Amino acid sequence: TYTYKLTDEEASRRAEDEWRNRGYDVRVRNNNGTWEVEVR
Rank of each mutant, 00 (worst) to 15 (best):
T1L: 11
T1V: 14
T1I: 13
T1K: 10
Y2F: 13
Y2K: 10
Y2V: 13
Y2R: 12
T3W: 09
T3L: 12
T3N: 05
T3M: 09
T3R: 09
Y4T: 03
Y4W: 09
Y4L: 11
Y4R: 00
Y4V: 07
Y4G: 01
K5G: 06
K5S: 12
K5H: 13
L6T: 14
L6R: 02
L6D: 04
L6E: 06
L6G: 07
L6F: 15
L6H: 12
T7Q: 14
T7V: 13
T7I: 13
T7A: 14
T7W: 13
T7S: 13
D8T: 13
D8W: 04
D8Q: 04
D8I: 04
D8Y: 04
D8A: 04
D8V: 03
E9F: 10
E9W: 10
E9S: 05
E9V: 07
E9Q: 08
E10R: 08
E10H: 08
A11R: 05
A11D: 08
A11M: 08
A11K: 06
A11I: 05
A11V: 05
A11Y: 05
S12W: 07
S12N: 02
S12T: 12
S12K: 05
S12C: 15
S12M: 14
S12A: 15
R13C: 05
R13G: 04
R13F: 05
R14G: 05
R14A: 11
R14Q: 10
R14L: 10
R14N: 08
A15L: 15
A15H: 11
A15G: 02
A15F: 14
A15S: 06
A15Y: 11
E16H: 08
E16L: 12
E16Q: 12
E16M: 13
E16P: 03
E16K: 06
D17T: 15
D17R: 15
D17E: 15
D17L: 15
D17Y: 14
E18N: 08
E18L: 15
E18A: 11
E18D: 09
W19Y: 06
W19S: 01
W19A: 04
W19D: 01
W19F: 08
W19K: 00
W19L: 07
W19G: 01
W19R: 00
R20G: 03
R20L: 07
R20T: 07
R20A: 05
N21K: 14
N21S: 14
N21Q: 13
R22Y: 05
R22N: 05
R22F: 05
R22P: 00
R22T: 03
G23A: 01
G23V: 00
G23C: 09
Y24P: 01
Y24Q: 02
Y24D: 01
Y24S: 01
D25Y: 10
D25G: 05
D25S: 10
D25P: 04
D25M: 11
D25F: 11
D25L: 12
V26Q: 00
V26A: 04
V26G: 00
V26S: 01
V26E: 00
R27L: 13
R27H: 12
R27G: 05
R27W: 10
R27V: 15
V28P: 00
V28D: 02
V28G: 02
R29A: 07
R29I: 14
R29S: 12
N30A: 08
N30T: 06
N30L: 12
N30G: 06
N30W: 14
N31S: 08
N31Y: 11
N31M: 10
N31Q: 08
N32I: 03
G33L: 02
G33C: 06
G33H: 03
G33K: 03
T34W: 12
T34M: 12
T34N: 08
T34E: 10
T34L: 12
T34P: 01
T34Q: 12
W35K: 00
W35D: 01
W35Q: 00
E36C: 10
E36P: 00
E36F: 13
E36V: 12
E36M: 09
V37P: 00
V37D: 00
V37I: 13
V37L: 12
V37T: 02
V37Q: 00
E38T: 13
E38N: 05
E38P: 00
V39S: 00
V39M: 02
R40I: 12
